[in-house]
Amino acid sequence: MLPLKVEVPPNPILRVQHDISRWDIRLIPEGLHIYVHRPGYTHHGIYIGDGKVIHFVGPKAGPTRACKKCGFSRNTGHGVVETCLECFLDGGSLCRYNYNVPRVRLLITFHTMCPNCTTTERLESGREIVATAKEKLKEGFGKYNLLSNNCEHFATFCSTGTAFCQQVKYTAELAAFPVLPRPVGLLMFYRDLI
């Protein structure tokens, strides 16, 4: 007789979903902080509905030829821009940034800090987040700086009223402690519960 395998249902408190590429675009809420993986980093923006995104880009961002759908290109400028979702994704998969994640979830699953999750609460409603993003589209968000004023700073500012970048913190943490052992046994135990 084979031993019975007991399936432990996932604990919703411990579940964090990032990949939303299979969501119906009509169900993506306005004001959602979204991101896409790029080589070596993630690019962030605010979904404003109707397949459009407001995001903060550096001077060399964008395709060399103007997008037929939204007109975005490297030559149309930089700073805070509004583009179609396709230009934002640039062939990548759509992901969502998670706010108000319990600290225990971050520690159990990622054993350090997840660069696309935060314990910070998303204070604004979707409409208020979109209004802030549109305001910054008109006013600007200062000069782009990879470490101190980037796309994630922009998206977190629109969502919480405070600009911060988990990606920079995470990278700095990994650089500062590259040889620390990971708590593999504990991590494997908790991942089995998820």
Rank of each mutant, 00 (worst) to 15 (best):
F177V: 07
L89H: 11
R182A: 04
I34F: 01
A61E: 09
V57R: 00
G62H: 00
T109K: 11
F56M: 00
L137Y: 11
E128R: 10
D24C: 01
E135C: 11
V53G: 04
F72I: 02
V101Q: 03
Y190D: 15
G92M: 04
R22I: 07
I20C: 02
G140Q: 06
L193K: 12
K136D: 07
I25S: 03
L32P: 02
M113E: 13
V81H: 00
T64F: 10
R15K: 13
R103M: 09
E152P: 06
V130Q: 13
C84E: 10
V36I: 01
Y41S: 00
T76K: 03
I46H: 06
F189N: 11
S148P: 07
N98P: 03
E135M: 14
A133Y: 08
G92R: 01
A155L: 05
I129F: 10
D192E: 14
N100W: 07
G142T: 05
F157S: 09
P63H: 07
F189P: 05
N11I: 14
V184A: 01
D24E: 01
N116H: 14
C84T: 02
V184L: 01
K136L: 13
E82L: 14
F56K: 00
G92P: 02
G51W: 05
G91N: 05
R122N: 15
P115S: 04
S159H: 08
L106F: 10
L193G: 13
T156E: 08
G77W: 00
C114T: 09
L85I: 06
C114I: 09
I46Q: 09
P181R: 02
N100H: 09
V36N: 03
L147A: 10
L14K: 15
L186N: 08
V101D: 04
Q166Y: 07
A176P: 11
A175F: 10
G51F: 08
R26V: 03
S73Q: 02
T119C: 11
H55I: 02
S148W: 14
L14D: 15
E124A: 14
R182I: 02
I108K: 13
R103C: 11
K60G: 13
F88K: 00
T162N: 13
V179M: 09
P181F: 01
A176T: 15
F154P: 01
L89F: 08
F154M: 04
K52L: 15
I20F: 05
C158R: 11
A163C: 14
I48K: 05
D24S: 01
R22G: 06
V36H: 02
Q166F: 10
G49M: 12
L187C: 07
G51K: 06
I108G: 09
L27K: 08
G77Y: 03
P183C: 00
K143V: 13
D19A: 06
T160P: 08
V104T: 10
N149S: 10
V101E: 03
P12Q: 03
R182V: 00
L94P: 08
T112P: 04
C87K: 01
K68Y: 11
K68Q: 14
G40D: 00
C165E: 12
K68W: 10
